[in-house]
Design a protein around this nucleic acid. Structure first.
Length: 483
RNA sequence: GGCGACGUGGCCGAGUGGUUAGGCAGAGGUCUGCAAAACCUCCUACGGCGGUUCGAGUCCGCCCGUCGCCUCCA
């Protein structure tokens, strides 16, 4: 594809992307509720959108990326009952709710940083935008889309003809749904809370025109996206599991308050599964990212480098489920290593006198894959094919004359867009003495080889290998690699 | 029950109706004292049954199976 196309959940098809304002993109992605450590599912979502943001920038757009931090209002049951997730966790950990929020916000960014996820331009906290949320609720009351009963304010779903357009639900036919108990002061079970009255035991509460209370979960995203991106913006993203009710409610609120379209494109990433089951915190089968990084989980036999996880996720499409297994991770690791070995080779090789590599073709090919709804899996496949060609040319001794340009492009694409550039080699961090010692051993070994004392030569190689130092002989000499 | 997906070779995982996805693993070979790396070659699949078509993994129907949402979840 020549131009960027995005699968839009609203239309259920790929559409050519056209920003509202030429050259600019406003994008909002639903962030985490900070009451626990982020897990592999979060990684899939935020790594996916990270590439979306990076690619939009690569294409030359000026992007404003807003991703909220939910630190209040997210209840354990439906939007009307249940406890606040943060307050519940606070009770368990014997901390203030805001301590919980701080702690898990910190962990969230810590783990995302490790995955190479660039930080959003704005990370607004729900508790920092209570006023904006109240204003939005007032607007909805004015517009006849909401009603108040005894300190609670609900959105009147029957007032919104379009309700259900995102998730493809016919609300009339939903009538006999399986919803269990609902709050008795609602006019209709489908109505959802905009503002909740706080009872005495509730810690996080604020004064409002309707008394002390706290905002409903959905309203924060409407209020904060409007504040930073405007009433009408380009892209809204999030996990598929939030399509309904969360995103549906956001649309209802924003369009009900401002009488104009909300986000033009809705993007939803699919889930990570574990043995075919969705990985979710509340399902108890989630493995946190920190556990992956440390190998500290009963389902893990070892630690996994963040970059392997990033690569593993990008090898599948964001709209497909990704089934996790250590076997699959291990395959990803070997593949990534191959890819990065070639990148290092290109990095270290000088331009030669060989035929110019067809850089334009590579660029076009790889862009066409990402233009097709961010198909990172295919882009990576192209990289494997093409980088192997380049390696072959370099190994033939006739490095391409335009290798410098190739290198520049690879930095722009593999580093800046995919975020898969090899980290500095471990060997570089080893001190000089270690390096000299290894070289000494190599020297001794090569003398042994010269004297056909292969027994000694192999013993040196084998024993070094046990120390994670790998020797590779070639006609040009012996190289070593640590780790 | 309603809505929506998906079922691809040993594993993971892309696929715009018509020549190879790709990765991992495996086999054989070249190179090497032997390894490793690299290179060459091989392993060519689309849940089942019908249908549309000159031609279907790719469209349509039915069936089987799996999953997601409908209650918190990226």
């Amino acid at each position: 594809m020549d131009k960027l196309h995005i699968y839009n959940t609203l239309s259920r098809e790929k559409e050519e992307f056209e920003p509202i304002k030429e050259g600019f993109v406003g994008i909002y992605v639903c962030g985490p509720t900070v009451y626990g450590d982020p897990h592999l599912g979060h990684a899939k979502s935020y790594v996916s959108f990270d590439v979306v943001i990076r690619y939009l920038r690569y294409l030359g757009y000026k992007v404003r990326y807003v991703q909220n931090i939910t630190d209040v209002g997210h209840l354990t049951d439906d939007a009307d009952q249940g406890e606040d997730k943060l307050e519940k966790q606070a009770a368990i950990e014997k901390l203030e709710p805001m301590e919980i929020a701080e702690k898990y916000t910190y962990n969230y960014f810590r783990d995302m940083d490790k995955l190479g996820v660039q930080r959003p331009d704005i990370s607004p906290r729900a508790t920092g935008h209570i006023i904006e949320q109240i204003q939005m609720v007032e607007k909805l009351l004015e517009n006849g889309h909401a009603y108040e009963t005894d300190g609670n304010v609900y959105f009147d779903v029957s007032s919104d003809e379009d309700y259900g357009k995102l998730s493809g639900r016919d609300i009339e036919e939903q009538e006999s749904g399986t919803r269990i108990e609902t709050a008795s002061d609602k006019q209709d079970p489908k109505d959802f809370a905009l503002w909740k009255k706080a009872d005495d035991g509730h810690i996080m509460k604020w004064p409002s025109p309707w008394g002390m209370g706290y905002p409903g979960w959905h309203v924060e995203c409407s209020a904060m996206s409007t504040k930073y991106l405007g009433e009408h913006f380009d892209i809204h993203g999030g996990g598929m599991d939030n399509q309904f009710p969360h995103h549906e409610c956001e649309i209802a609120q924003s369009e009900g308050a401002f009488n104009k379209p909300f986000a033009n494109y809705w993007m939803h990433n699919n889930m990570v599964t574990l043995e075919g089951q969705k990985m979710g915190k509340s399902l108890g089968n989630a493995i946190s990212l920190n556990e992956f990084f440390r190998g500290d989980h009963e389902l893990l036999s070892r630690a996994w480098d963040p970059q392997i996880i990033r690569f593993f996720l990008l090898q599948s499409h964001y709209r497909s489920t990704t089934d996790f297994s250590e076997e699959a991770l291990s395959s990803a690791e070997n593949g990534l290593r191959t890819l990065q070995d070639i990148l290092r080779l290109i990095e270290e090789t000088e331009e030669g006198t060989g035929d110019a590599y067809d850089l334009e073709a590579l660029k076009k090919s790889v862009e066409s894959k990402l233009n097709d709804d961010f198909n990172t899996a295919q882009a990576i496949a192209v990289l494997f094919d093409e980088l192997k060609k380049i390696r072959k040319q370099i190994n033939s001794g006739e490095a391409p004359e335009n290798l410098g340009d190739v290198r520049t492009f690879l930095h722009n694409f593999v580093d800046d867009v995919l975020g898969l550039w090899p980290e500095a080699e471990a060997a570089q961090s080893e001190d000089d003495k270690t390096e000299k010692l290894i070289e000494l051993l190599i020297d001794i070994r090569n003398k042994a080889r010269h004297n056909k004392n292969f027994e000694l030569a192999d013993a040196i190689r084998d024993q070094l290998e046990e120390l994670d130092i790998k020797l590779m002989d070639s006609p040009e000499g012996t190289e070593f690699k640590i780790g």
